[in-house]
């Protein structure tokens, strides 16, 4: 390492620690300052709780705090993508790792971020794919037609995905006005999410409900057939 590189590295380190301190300070501030909890409940046409609804809160009139881009992993395991839905912050990246014993061929047709990972060998971990546009991306496996994964790109740190009862709980949300978006995979690529506005109190809980005008389709599962080899979960060390 040359002198100049060394100095640059030191400077970079200093800057990183400054940012880290800033983030820690900010987090501390949020925890102690006026912040509330948002609970949302999403239901289908018949009022039943809906699984896999992505809720995101965007502050109105102020920019969402900056975030350090993250890298998450979506695996292919037992001929399924795992997790089925991921929510990431805009600017973050996803690694699609093949943990099966068969090849996969991943392709996204979403206009906001088309990509393809052709001939995706078992055990292969290709470079991360960065997502810079807000919205939902769906990735398919060309070889296994039931396999799909969703990546929801949100430009806010406040989000969550609903459980089987349809509820999401987002804590430590600074008091203020927010736009709340509720998105479900069955909306497809072009139908907009359901949206509402709410005021997060300085403490305590604010609750809102969403009603989708359809019944969610069942999530497609891998067919049970003896001819297809899958990774055995017990073989992982």
């Amino acid at each position: 390492m040359t002198q100049i590189e060394h100095v640059t590295t030191l400077r970079l380190l200093k800057r990183i620690s400054a940012v880290a301190l800033g983030v820690a300070g900010f987090a501390g501030l949020v925890a102690t300052a006026h912040a509330g909890t948002v609970i949302t409940v999403a239901g289908d046409r018949d009022g039943l709780g809906m699984l896999n609804v992505v809720i995101s809160l965007k502050p109105i009139g102020v920019a969402a705090p900056a975030a350090v881009p993250a890298i998450i992993t979506v695996t292919q395991e037992n001929l399924q993508f795992k997790p089925y839905i991921s929510v990431i912050r805009k600017g973050s990246s996803v690694v699609f790792a093949n943990r099966d014993t068969v090849e996969h061929h991943i392709k996204s047709f979403s206009s906001s971020r088309p990509f393809e990972i052709a001939v995706h060998k078992p055990g292969d971990t290709p470079p991360p794919i960065r997502f810079d546009s807000e919205g939902a991306i769906v990735a398919y496996c060309i070889l296994h037609d039931w396999m799909r994964a969703y990546v929801y790109v949100a430009d806010t740190p406040w989000y969550g995905t609903s459980n089987a009862t349809g509820s999401v709980r987002i804590e430590n949300v600074p008091a203020g006005e927010y736009e709340v978006n509720a998105w479900h995979p069955d909306l497809g690529q072009f139908k907009p999410p359901l949206t509402t506005k709410l005021t997060v109190p300085e403490s305590g809980i604010v609750q809102t409900t969403f009603k989708f005008e359809f019944k969610p389709r069942p999530i497609r599962q891998a067919p049970r057939q003896s001819g297809v080899k899958t990774a055995d979960a017990h073989q992982h060390h």
């Binding site: 088309p114 990509f115 990972i117 001939v119 060998k121 470079p127 794919i129």
Partner: peptide
């Protein structure tokens, strides 16, 4: 193209 695409994410450019 396939050789290039192996294990590499290529942005499809319509």
């Amino acid at each position: 193209l396939c050789v290039c695409a192996t294990s590499v994410a290529l942005a499809q450019a319509p």
